[in-house]
């Protein structure tokens, strides 16, 4: 201890204190302040970036769920539209079918009626032609066999009465 006190150099103490304080004030102005400021600034910017990233992530999640909802809605709407379309189609088809059937029935009935009419007309004509043919035949026969027209007519009418066309 005594040796330490004896060795103590006031000059070194003086210079060291002076130089150390000088160094400290210079460093404070030119190094520590700018360094600590930059470091703090960077830390803050990192924190901010992290926060905004977190926020963006949350937004993305919200957006996604919104998208999902929209998609779901769209799907429902589509389904409803498809269903309605199917119904409409079925209705139209069944209506058309009904209409076509009645129309067809009607046409068939008409055709049938026409056929009947034609058939009746044809029969009538056939009847008249056959009768005229028969008359002509009978006339020719009778002309030869019967000279008398009055007798002939009586004979014809009895004959035609007898002939049944069924």
């Amino acid at each position: 201890m005594e040796k330490l006190v004896e060795q103590f150099s006031v000059g070194l103490f003086f210079w060291h204190t002076l130089l150390f304080l000088g160094l400290m004030f210079l460093l404070r102005k030119f190094a520590w302040k700018p360094i600590l400021n930059s470091v703090t600034e960077r830390e803050e910017s990192i924190r901010e970036a992290l926060n905004s990233a977190e926020k963006a992530k949350a937004e993305l999640v919200a957006l996604e769920s919104k998208n999902d909802e929209l998609l779901k809605e769209a799907r429902l709407e589509r389904d409803a539209m498809l269903k309605a379309a199917r119904e409409t189609r079925e209705k139209i088809v069944s209506e058309a079918k009904g209409l076509a059937k009645t129309e067809g029935d009607k046409m068939i009935a008409q055709a049938r009626e026409a056929i009947e009419n034609e058939k009746a007309a044809a029969l009538e004509e056939l009847k008249s032609q056959v009768s005229s043919l028969a008359i002509q035949v009978a006339e020719k026969v009778l002309r030869k066999e019967l000279g008398d027209a009055k007798r002939q007519n009586e004979l014809v009418s009895t004959l035609t009465e007898e002939i049944n066309f069924n």
Partner: peptide, 30 residues
């Protein structure tokens, strides 16, 4: 009274300059 620039004082000056150079250039790099 001895206020000499002794070996230690001289070394402190040189090392202080070194420290100042290192850290001021570090501050500039930011």
């Amino acid at each position: 009274f001895d206020f000499s620039i002794t070996k230690n004082v001289f070394s402190i000056i040189v090392i202080s300059l070194f420290i100042f150079w290192i850290f001021s250039s570090m501050a500039k790099s930011y």
